[in-house]
């Protein structure tokens, strides 16, 4: 299978690899996927409590190149966005940006789930009410 240049770029130079302190109040952690499915993504965000801007994001992913690229891209995109802006990122945006083939669409879905799970975790920690109509992945 040939990979798009953007997938290769993220695979070769994954952005924002790392770990944030998950016990910190300002950090939200999303852990999605399952080892037996061959994909596990952990996406973490650090949110400014005043502005609700995501000031830092880190990821680690066990998965194929497309899964690594999807989560790497997700960290790039959420950084600098407010929490509610970040929730508008959809998997189809990721598919488009990375030119993922149909068989890899589940990687983009997982990345979207990871963003939502991380934000959901942060909201829970900080007692922020869920916005109407915004589902938070329950898989964190």
């Amino acid at each position: 299978m040939a990979y798009s240049d953007k997938v290769l770029s993220h695979y070769e130079h994954p952005r924002n690899v790392g770990t944030l302190d998950k016990s910190s109040e300002s950090v939200g952690t999303g852990l999605v996927g399952a080892p037996e499915c061959g994909d596990v993504m952990r996406l973490q965000i650090r949110v400014n409590p005043e502005t609700q801007v995501i000031e830092d994001a880190k990821f680690k992913t066990f998965g194929c190149g497309s899964a690594i690229a999807s989560s790497s891209l997700a960290t790039e995109w959420v950084k600098g966005k407010t929490v509610s802006e970040a929730l508008t990122i959809s998997n189809t945006d990721i598919v488009k940006e990375l030119a993922l083939p149909p068989v890899k669409i589940h990687c983009s879905v997982l990345a979207e789930d990871a963003i939502r799970a991380a934000i959901g975790d942060w909201k829970k920690k900080n007692g922020v009410a869920e916005e109407a109509g915004v589902a938070v992945a329950a898989s964190a």
């Binding site: 994954p14 690899v17 770990t19 852990l31 080892p35 596990v40 993504m41 952990r42 680690k60 992913t61 066990f62 690594i68």
Partner: peptide, 8 residues
Amino acid sequence: RELSPLYE
């Protein structure tokens, strides 16, 4: 493995 949440 540096990238793997499972390994960590």
